[in-house]
Amino acid sequence: KDDYLILLSENDGVVYFKNQHIKSLTEGSNNGKNGNNGQNYSLDQINSLDYVAPDTFEELLEDLRYQWVTINRGGPEKVEGMLHDTNGEFVALFCNEELLRLSMYHIRSISYGVKVEEEENDNDES
């Protein structure tokens, strides 16, 4: 998109990364597994994902209002809570019974619980 990219992660589902914080991208696989880094998603699974994808990161945050989100996944800056409001400079989210305000500049990524459903294996015999 204009100022962010969307990544499908096996553990975190759909994750949105702001372009200004991306240092590098690598396409393909380092382990030789069909170029998908060992993630075995079918096209049907990926196409059936219901996620938002507006043109800008600010519009994304508007679309995620009142959703449970994870900001800056992993590490000490990770924050989880319900996204309450955004004004272009700050976002506000309810986190542990507190209203927390974060500067937009310090948001590197955001996710909100959209994940690929695992396909059931029809070959299982009980």
Rank of each mutant, 00 (worst) to 15 (best):
Lys1Ala: 01
Asp2Met: 07
Asp3Cys: 05
Leu5Trp: 01
Leu5Asp: 08
Leu7Pro: 00
Glu10Ile: 03
Glu10Ala: 08
Glu10Pro: 04
Glu10Cys: 11
Asn11Lys: 15
Gly13Val: 00
Phe17Asp: 14
Lys18Arg: 15
Asn19Phe: 00
Gln20Pro: 08
His21Gln: 04
His21Leu: 12
Lys23Trp: 03
Ser24Gly: 11
Thr26Ile: 14
Glu27Lys: 10
Gly28His: 10
Gly28Lys: 03
Asn31Phe: 02
Asn37Pro: 03
Asn37Arg: 08
Gln39Gly: 10
Asn40Tyr: 06
Asn40Val: 05
Asn40Phe: 02
Tyr41Leu: 10
Tyr41Ala: 10
Tyr41Asn: 05
Ser42Met: 11
Ile46Lys: 00
Asn47Gly: 08
Ser48Arg: 13
Asp50Asn: 10
Tyr51Gln: 00
Pro54Ala: 06
Thr56Asp: 10
Phe57Asn: 07
Glu59His: 00
Leu60Ile: 02
Leu60Asp: 01
Leu61Met: 12
Tyr66Gln: 15
Thr70Asp: 11
Arg73Tyr: 02
Arg73Leu: 13
Gly74Met: 10
Lys78Trp: 01
Val79Asp: 03
Glu80Asp: 11
Glu80Pro: 06
Glu80Cys: 13
Met82Pro: 06
Met82Glu: 14
Asp85Lys: 14
Asn87Glu: 07
Asn87Val: 07
Gly88Ile: 14
Glu89Gln: 15
Glu89Leu: 08
Val91Thr: 06
Ala92Glu: 12
Leu93Val: 01
Leu93Glu: 07
Phe94Arg: 02
Phe94Gly: 04
Cys95Tyr: 10
Cys95His: 14
Asn96Ile: 01
Asn96Trp: 08
Glu97Val: 09
Leu99Thr: 09
Leu100Met: 11
Ser103Gln: 14
Ile107Val: 03
Ile107Met: 12
Arg108Thr: 13
Ser109Leu: 07
Tyr112Glu: 07
Tyr112Gly: 11
Gly113Thr: 13
Gly113Tyr: 01
Val114Asp: 01
Lys115Glu: 03
Lys115Ile: 00
Glu118Ile: 00
Asn121Arg: 12
Asp124His: 04
Asp124Ile: 15
